[in-house]
């Protein structure tokens, strides 16, 4: 590793790191929203809602993320839907992960003591209000640690959008390495930058798990 190389590569990779962060945050938002909707649909007593949600979740979980990305980037334009690589990356990753987010949220919702729902009903609350005021606030606490883990996985899987030419860190690394042949320097830097992003997240998740693991739960006799 030559220091001069490091200093010439680093600005390029840092710029690409911003794209990595953008893709991660964008698809995190999309997957959270979509995942929440899917989870609420899936636990609904109405089959009209729960069945389509289940089907969607299973289909998405059954497909490799790369195939989903290729489909959105290469097939949709043929149907008249034009997306930039960046947009396709966020939408593809967001949809792919919405299935996992939905499962996280569903598990959180179903972990709520049924007595909570009965207590809410007994003071006259209706379904949507119970969801908003009683179930979701508690489910979110339960879901936070797995949500953090999913975020770490999304950060790493954002490298998959390099396959549809999004200029994020992995792709920038590939291009740099191909043009300079400094594989060792380039990929070490790429790896270190990923760690710089993921390790703080992982520590955060660990702290969350500790925080929610002990105490802070209802003391049931």
């Amino acid at each position: 590793m030559i220091l001069a190389d490091v200093f010439s590569f680093l600005p390029i990779l840092l710029k690409a790191a911003i794209v990595t962060i953008e893709v991660t945050v964008g698809s995190l938002l999309l997957s959270t929203l979509l995942g929440l909707v899917l989870a609420i649909m899936k636990v609904s007593p109405t089959q009209l809602l729960s069945v389509p949600a289940s089907v969607f979740i299973n289909v998405i979980r059954g497909l490799p993320i790369i195939v989903q990305l290729f489909y959105i980037y290469f097939v949709l334009p043929g149907m008249g839907i034009q997306l930039t690589a960046f947009q396709a990356g966020i939408i593809g990753l967001g949809i792919a992960y919405s299935a996992y987010q939905a499962e996280n949220f569903r598990a959180g919702i179903q972990a709520i003591d049924p007595g909570q729902i009965e207590a809410a009903k007994s003071i006259g609350m209706k379904g949507p209000l119970i969801m908003r005021r009683v179930i979701l606030p508690q489910a979110i606490r339960i879901t936070l640690p797995p949500y953090g883990n999913t975020t770490v996985m999304m950060l790493k899987d954002s490298s998959l959008v390099s396959t549809i030419t999004v200029a994020e860190m992995t792709r920038a690394g590939q291009l740099l390495a191909a043009s300079t042949f400094e594989n060792m320097t380039v990929y070490t830097l790429v790896a270190l930058l990923y760690l710089a992003l993921s390790l703080p997240l992982i520590f955060g998740v660990n702290r969350l798990e500790k925080h929610f693991g002990q105490g802070n739960r209802r003391r049931d006799k």
């Binding site: 909570q116 207590a119 009903k121 007994s122 003071i123 508690q138 049931d220």
Partner: peptide, 20 residues
């Protein structure tokens, strides 16, 4: 039914307070 439930209060064996 929701309005009716507000006419009758219920107290449960296990309290079921909202912990949050």
């Amino acid at each position: 039914i929701h309005a009716l439930r507000t006419r009758v209060g219920m107290v449960f064996q296990r309290f079921n307070l909202f912990p949050h």
